Simulated assay, not measured.
Amino acid sequence: MRRVRSIAGDSVNLLLYRELERCDDATEEVLWRLNPELAEWGSILPAGVWVVLPEVDSKPVAPTPVSAWD
Rank of each mutant, 00 (worst) to 15 (best):
W69A: 08
W41D: 11
A47P: 09
E28K: 15
L34P: 04
W32T: 01
W41P: 05
K59C: 08
E21A: 02
R3W: 10
A62T: 03
V4H: 01
S6Q: 11
S58M: 12
L38C: 10
M1D: 15
D24L: 03
V61W: 03
V49H: 07
A68T: 12
A26P: 11
S11E: 11
L31P: 02
V49E: 10
V12L: 15
W32I: 03
D24V: 09
V49T: 06
W32V: 02
S11Q: 13
D10N: 10
S6C: 12
L45F: 05
E28N: 12
A8P: 00
D25T: 06
A39S: 15
T27I: 12
G42N: 08
I44A: 04
V12H: 04
E29G: 09
D24Q: 07
W69Q: 02
A62F: 02
A8H: 10
G9D: 07
P54L: 00
A8R: 11
T64M: 00
S6T: 15
R2W: 03
M1T: 14
L14E: 14
S67A: 08
L15H: 05
L16S: 08
W50M: 04
L34I: 13
L38S: 08
A8D: 14
L14T: 12
L14H: 08
D10A: 11
G42V: 08
P54D: 01
W69H: 09
W32Q: 03
N35L: 05
P65Q: 09
L15G: 01
T64V: 02
V49M: 04
E29T: 14
R2E: 12
P65L: 05
L53Q: 06
A26K: 15
V49P: 09
L15A: 07
P60I: 00
V12A: 13
R22M: 01
A39F: 06
K59D: 05
T27W: 03
L16T: 04
L31M: 10
D25I: 04
D24N: 08
A47I: 13
S67F: 06
V51K: 00
R5E: 15
